[in-house]
Design a protein around this nucleic acid. Structure first.
Lengths: 188, 188
DNA sequence: TTCTCCATGTAAGTAGTTACATGATTGG
DNA sequence: CCAATCATGTAACTACTTACATGGAGAA
């Protein structure tokens, strides 16, 4: 029943597992740090909740993709992880697999905009304004984490910067289209 | 426990219900047509599966937001729906509520790009290329449904056109950033 | 000592998907 | 008569979230 290419009894990995694996590769050690890394980087296009992380680390360990060891801070228990060569290969394989790159954008804001003709013109206009402002805030937030991307770049990881630029460009495009629309509406 | 403003025993509505309600308002009659409308319009930023639609229509009917009637085609059973004034108000209220417009973008493609430094440079480059091509295809797909947006516009619904332009601008921005990155990489 | 952060976990729920099943109608 | 489309449904599952619980460590 398992789709594992080895036909063994290892748990099948989900997307969250590759995200966790990728973050361990980038230096996140504990589950707690992984959550922080996600919040500082990919949260603009992917989120994971704290609850998902610990079972995920277990699955990765069972598969031999990470090695974990008890690493308490004083009397506070902690478990830290490192990626294994097997894990590196698994991550690469997942990244190369063109099987699973469906375009998947889910945005309630856009849905609301789509239906905005159900509103009074003034309410519709304020919805467009709210949408535009949301993107303005996001651009500011993205600009504020640029230093992290620069740091990653100097560490040999240039793609975080690429996704940062993509995010900024995305929201700038939203702002521009909204502004044009608002202008047209103001003239009418 | 129910958050219904009337404190009654009506089922709480989820996002999918407002999407269905909005589509009924735009003229989708049966569950089948609702699915088609979604595929022709908002599928680029929101999808719903066929399975969700029929329970959703029931919830909306219980709430009095749509009126349904048996409307068979020959011996094939069919149920068609219309939005009620109460439903119009509920939709407007949901659209106006600034409570639930969190930015929610979930894109595996971007996640893969973020982690692409784990790959050999050539593999990373082809991932960027695949990402760019995905957006190119999407722009073409969006351009091909422009006629529908124009038709909607002449029908008094101008916001579908706005979301279409947003989609096009979004992907054009992705293409541009990727192209720049690819150029830089090619020189290195 | 009290607040914030570090660190992990359980339980219960909501949302959404895939696979499958059924059967009528329409057009070539 | 055969394929595509119309039309609805059930069952089982995966993914993800929210709420809650616990407690040590470090700083003010």
């Amino acid at each position: 029943m398992s789709a594992s290419s080895h036909g063994e009894d290892r748990p099948e990995l989900a997307i969250v597992d590759f995200v966790v694996l990728g973050m361990v590769r980038l230096g996140a050690r504990s589950g707690y740090e992984i959550k922080q890394f996600v919040e500082m980087s990919i949260r603009f296009f992917w989120t994971i909740s704290q609850v998902q992380i610990y079972p995920s680390l277990k699955r990765l360990e069972v598969n031999g993709f990470v090695r974990g060891q008890a690493d308490p801070r004083g009397r506070r228990p902690r478990r830290t992880y490192q990626i294994t060569p097997l894990g590196e290969r698994a991550l690469e394989e997942w990244l190369r697999g063109n099987d699973s790159m469906p375009f998947e954008l889910r945005d309630i804001g856009m849905v609301k905009l789509f239906f905005a003709d159900a509103l009074q013109p003034s309410d519709a206009a304020s919805l467009v304004g709210a949408f535009r402002r949301r993107s303005e805030e996001r651009v500011a937030a993205l600009r504020s984490i640029k230093a992290d991307a620069v740091a990653a770049e100097q560490d040999g990881n240039s793609h975080p910067m690429l996704t940062l630029q993509l995010g900024i460009a995305f929201h700038e495009a939203m702002i521009e289209v909204c502004a044009e629309y608002e202008e047209r509406f103001a003239l009418a």
